[in-house]
Design a protein around this nucleic acid. Structure first.
Length: 559
RNA sequence: GCGCCCGUAGCUCAGCUGGAUAGAGCACCAGGCUUCGAACCUGGGGGUCGGAGGUUCGAAUCCUUCCGGGCGUACCA
């Protein structure tokens, strides 16, 4: 059982409110019980937290919302940490918390350390998470960096939330495209024309030189060697981003092991296929696909989709009963959803698995102009170039700035800037500043003061930081359940902003500051530092203890 | 044609499992450094949440429809 320490005082409050509502729902003979929300009111005058519990419950028990609110409020007022409750508007319940509650929250965050908000999911099923899976016929492109940043952050968040996660990269090292790649390499090496639909980029020429290609080489074998080289390069690019996959899964291995043939037999034996002029067709329209799909051609060769079926079956066997599959696919793959889910059911699995997340496109712009990207023409920005230009932390931070179902445009001018335009440095700076405060307090020998002797109320800015800290477990749970790592990115920025205000209003040490206040504020600063570092780590961004001092621009200010 | 995603401030976008006066960053204007890091902070201007209907006590959020943009629609991989 997860301890309340890890789950924070806020989660405890949330659960207590839910319990009150559950009870009133039962008492009111309601069919179900609504899920109540606990949120931060926009206006701080409304209290520290607010809940829509009464507004949710009222319709279920067919009573007046304000009346229900009054009833909930009476009970909520008795909850630990709550100092006052009031009912406002149509039936909002506003809660104000006492200083003790805030101080406990700080201690809870410090006790939990990097396990704060961990193990928050109820059903921690094992998850096999596949992402990137870029075609190995070229280098990793900048767009793939979005998939990489998203998938890796999601894996980190899911693990923190309690899931056992395996990350996987599916390598399309089989089929016609690999042969075509080999033929393109050979053509580049020998100076002949690249085949139609072949790969044109300069990287192919470079690769040919690297591989020491000679005129008589076998294009098929060259294709395999080329793929191996591209995968090695992708691994390097991913590692520059701090991303390491648990497994690279070879499509070719499915063909070689006979798994593809077995998959075809499996769905055929289940009675879901038709023979069409010698080809084997899977009736995916049974499950909502807009057309049936060939899995074996008339010439006997299995299609790409047949390998997908075998891969799906292999994944199911590895993740085990109760396990869960997540595919992260590009927007240009949305047509796969129906057929993949169809294949899953043809194999006898449940409807809602595998889960497919569609990532929208990302584009890069510079000087107000969008950069074109075409892999065939070889005209693209690689992930490695992007990282060289703006750095790994900025790449990951920017790639996670937006929801995955939103198209994203990254302005390279802003992303490579060292100043205000670049929020990643703002967040890191706040972390460095908190580290600096601790260093200063330690140097002054004030780090071990008695915080409990502090006898003035907490400043609003200090309370605001602590409220934000208390929300991390909820943010993690939400980001994990809804597969939205950008929530954690935004959380980190909000926390950084709160830290900045705390820094402004609550000097930790200095002349005239009571040592007890110094001790208490240092606890808050330490907790904020710990949670900020944790949030950054969940999105794969580093939390430096110090940053290079930035020189004053120009210098003519004094002139 | 059909299918999926999107349309919120000048720009890039949060908010979308319905709730209080629609937010952030950037850009713009005006201020602020003798003390823990100014990569910062304070204030200001800027919105028919693409349009129109509907459901609801309440809609940026749900439904219908139209308009606009992206992507897809292979016995390619």
């Amino acid at each position: 059982m997860a301890s309340t320490t890890q789950n924070s005082a806020l989660r405890g409050l949330h659960e207590a409110l839910q319990a009150i509502v559950d009870e009133l729902a039962r008492a009111g003979d309601a069919a179900g019980t609504p899920r109540v929300e606990l949120e931060r009111p926009r206006d701080e005058a409304h209290g520290d937290f607010a809940t829509n519990a009464a507004l949710m419950l009222a319709p279920v028990v067919r009573r007046n919302p304000r009346e229900v609110a009054q009833e909930i409020a009476e009970r909520a007022g008795a909850l630990p940490g709550v100092t006052s409750v009031d009912v406002a508007g149509p039936g909002f319940i506003n809660l104000t918390m006492g200083d003790d509650w805030f101080l406990e929250t700080v201690e809870a965050a410090l006790d939990a350390g990097d396990r704060f908000g961990a193990d928050v999911v109820a059903n921690a099923a094992p998850i096999l998470l596949e992402f990137v899976s870029a075609n190995p016929t070229g280098p990793l492109v900048a767009a793939s960096a979005r998939h990489a940043a998203y998938g890796d952050a999601l894996a980190r968040i899911l693990r923190h939330a309690g899931h056992d996660v395996t990350t996987e990269f599916y390598v399309n090292d089989a089929g016609r495209q690999v042969d075509l790649f080999g033929a393109s390499i050979l053509a580049r090496a020998t100076g002949s024309d690249v085949p139609e639909d072949g790969y044109q980029g300069d990287y192919v020429t470079e690769l040919a030189a690297e591989l020491g290609v000679a005129a008589g080489d076998d294009p098929v074998e060259l294709g395999q060697r080329g793929v191996a080289a591209m995968i090695a390069g992708m691994r390097t690019s991913l590692e520059q981003l701090g991303i390491r996959f648990d497994t690279f899964f070879s499509e070719k291995s499915l063909h070689e092991s006979g798994a593809v043939d077995r998959g075809i037999e499996h769905v055929a034996a289940a009675g879901y296929t038709d023979d069409e002029d010698g080809a084997v067709i899977l009736r995916t329209t049974t499950w909502g696909d807009d057309r049936d799909r060939a899995i074996r051609r008339a010439n006997g060769v299995p299609t790409y989709f047949a390998a997908d079926i075998a891969y799906l079956e292999d994944k199911f066997s590895r993740v085990g009963a109760g396990g869960h599959l997540i595919y992260v696919l590009g927007a240009d793959h949305h047509g796969y959803i129906a057929r993949l889910k169809g294949a899953s059911q043809a194999l006898g699995h449940e409807v809602d698995t595998p889960e497919i997340v569609i990532m929208q496109m990302v584009t890069l712009s510079e000087s107000g102009e969008q950069k074109k990207m075409s892999k065939r023409r070889g005209d693209f920005v690689t992930a490695a170039e992007l990282v060289d230009r703006i750095g790994a932390d900025a790449t990951r931070f920017w790639m996670l700035e937006r929801s995955h179902d939103q198209q994203l445009e990254i302005d390279l001018d802003a992303a490579s800037a060292q100043g205000d335009e670049n929020p990643v440095y703002y967040v890191q700076m706040m972390h460095a500043r908190l580290c600096s405060i601790r260093r200063n307090v330690e140097a002054a020998g004030l780090a071990d003061g008695d915080a409990s002797a502090a006898n003035e109320p907490l400043h609003a800015s200090e309370k605001r930081v602590i409220k934000r800290l208390s929300e991390l477990p909820i943010v993690v749970a939400d980001a994990a359940e809804r597969r939205v790592p950008h929530r954690v990115h935004h959380y980190a920025r909000e926390l950084a902003t709160d830290v900045s205000k705390f820094y402004r209003d609550c000097r930790v040490m200095g002349d005239g500051i009571d040592p007890a206040i110094t001790a208490r504020r240092l606890r808050t600063a330490d907790a904020a530092r710990s949670v900020l570092a944790l949030a950054l780590s969940l999105v794969g961004v580093s939390a430096p203890e110090a940053m290079e001092r930035r020189e004053v621009e120009g210098g003519e200010a004094d002139a």
